[in-house]
Every structure is written in C-alpha cells, then in structure tokens.
Write a protein that binds this DNA or RNA. Structure first.
Lengths: 145, 145
DNA sequence: CCCTTTCTTGACTATGAGAGTCAAGAATTA
DNA sequence: TAATTCTTGACTCTCATAGTCAAGAAAGGG
C-alpha cells in the first residue's frame, strides 16, 4: 500500500465532487454512500479538504459540499501533497525512506529515494481530476456497450 | 514511508555484502554493527534473502554470509520484489491502492496506480548495488576531501 | 570428542500509525 | 422551533510492522 486509505478516500471524494460540479451542493452522506466511504470518517476528511481551497461547504438544511476550481485545474499531486501536509505539519523530505538519517551509510540511498519520489510525483502532478473523470466514464461506456 | 524498515534493512545488508565481496565471509553480527540494524532482526532477514539466490551462508565457526553475483548484476528492484514476495506470497497487483477493488468506481484510479508503480520500478530496476556502492564511496571522498 | 561460534527456525511480544467512531454543538432554512 | 447538515476534536480500535527470544543444528578448532 503506497497510498493511505485516508488519501484514497480524499481522492475519491474529490472525484465525486468533480463529477457533480454544477449540480448544486453535494451532501457528505451522498458522497459516502456513492463512493463507499465510512460516513463519519469522510466528514473528517472533507473538513480538512476545505483548507485546501479546492472545496467549500455550506451548512444547515440543504447544505453540502462543492468543488471550487474546474476539475482540469486540480491535479492528484496537489490533493495528495495537501493531505500529507495535514497529517504531518513538519514534513521531512526524507520521509520516503526514514525520518531520521542518523547513521551515515544511509546516505548511499538518499539519491535513490529522491529519484523515486520525483518519479511518483511526476505521475501524480500530470494527472488531473478531469483525467480521472474521463477514465470513469470510459469504463462505464465499455460496460454498457 | 514508502518502503518498509525491513526492506531498507535488506537493502543495507546487501550493500554491505556487496562492499565486502571478495573479502571472505561476513558475519551477521558485523553487518548489524556496521549498518546499525537490530542483530536478531537482521538474522531473520538474511535467512530470507538466502532464498533469493543472491546470498549464500556458511554456518559454524568462521561462518557468515557472502554475495553470489557481482554487485552490478543485482538491481534494487530485484531485491525489493523478492522481499515483497516473502511477505505476501499472494501478491495482488492492485496492492498499491487497495487489496479489494470491490466497488466499481475505484477503477477510475487503477490506471493511475499502475502508472505510479511502473514509474517506481523503472527507478528501482535501473539502480544496481554497484550504483549504491559508487554513491557511498563518492560521499566518503567528499567528507574526507 | 567436546567446545565455541554462527547460522536456523519459528513462535512470541510490543508499538505506532492509521482507521474509524462518537457526541455535543453551531449554522441554516423551512 | 424543528429538522437538517456541517464542525470539531477527542476518543478507541485494529493490525501490519518491528523487534525479541530460545532452543537447536551445522561446522570447525583443539
């Protein structure tokens, strides 16, 4: 598992909001049901996502969540980076390998870890919510046809 | 942490064996001390590594471990893949995301996960133990000079 | 043969991050 | 005022990972 459950839920929720953009407010409970996410847990995640500026909410009767930018303007990398910052305010660059590089020989690997991290984010930063939406609809078409 | 402590220990032990290749047998306890790895835990890992064919051991008085192929012939990817197989005999391709893709919408991401996994292994498969040795000696030179 | 060293095996425990829950409260609208 | 929905943060639980332990088997030295 290279990506936490929490971050996957965040991405799925964002994808759901992207799909329903323009259709008014989307309730947390609707997203939870549609995307198979534990409802309470989703509330926590959505609250956090508000801090990213990609999502806004309205509470009370007929309240809900909505996506602010266009899906093509949001990359997976941005979402994941934001979520990581939420979890680890003091994010250490070497967390891909270990948080304390206390012994010297570990450094033989540091170059490797940075190249891996760069490769990963090259993919994440090159994928937008719109791309994911396209995937999803392509799959639905295949199933139907 | 994208790579487990266990797998890092495995890589560090392999690097140590690569460096001492040609110098006779290397004791588990020596590796543990030199590379700052819990000794008992390292024994478990070295035993597993024997199954990879990259490492052989001799027990008894004056026993120890040694690397079989040349360091340039072993990639980080091969070591990590072997270790993963050790831990998860039934490795599922989608483990990068989740082990059960039970709900349909998850598939919007499957393409993303495979591209990420491919990007990671492109780096791992392109890095040999020899490369790591070169890193290590380059660093020592810098420090000394 | 006996002793020491070192690997062998597998069961065992501990720890921490991640996952998920709960409950009281504050907006909002009907 | 009542119903609905988001808000907040503390709380518990679970499980993979990490690491330990102990008894034993192979190998060589004396």
């Amino acid at each position: 598992m290279l990506i936490t459950q929490r971050n996957q839920y965040a991405l799925r929720a964002m994808l759901d909001l992207a799909i329903h953009k323009g259709g008014g407010l989307r309730k947390s409970s609707e997203i939870a049901r549609a995307r198979n996410i534990p409802p309470r847990f989703l509330e926590v995640i959505l609250s956090q996502l508000k801090g990213s500026g990609f999502v806004k909410s309205k509470r009370g009767y007929q309240g809900g969540y909505t996506l602010i930018p266009e899906p093509a303007q949001i990359t997976v990398g941005e979402v994941l980076r934001f979520m990581d910052r939420e979890e680890r305010p003091l994010h250490c660059i070497a967390c891909i390998s270990k948080c304390k590089c206390s012994y010297d020989d570990g450094c033989a690997f540091s170059n490797l870890w940075s190249r891996v991290e760069a490769a990963i984010y090259r993919v994440y930063d090159g994928t937008t919510l719109q791309d994911l939406m396209d995937n999803e609809s392509a799959m639905t078409v295949e199933e139907t046809g």
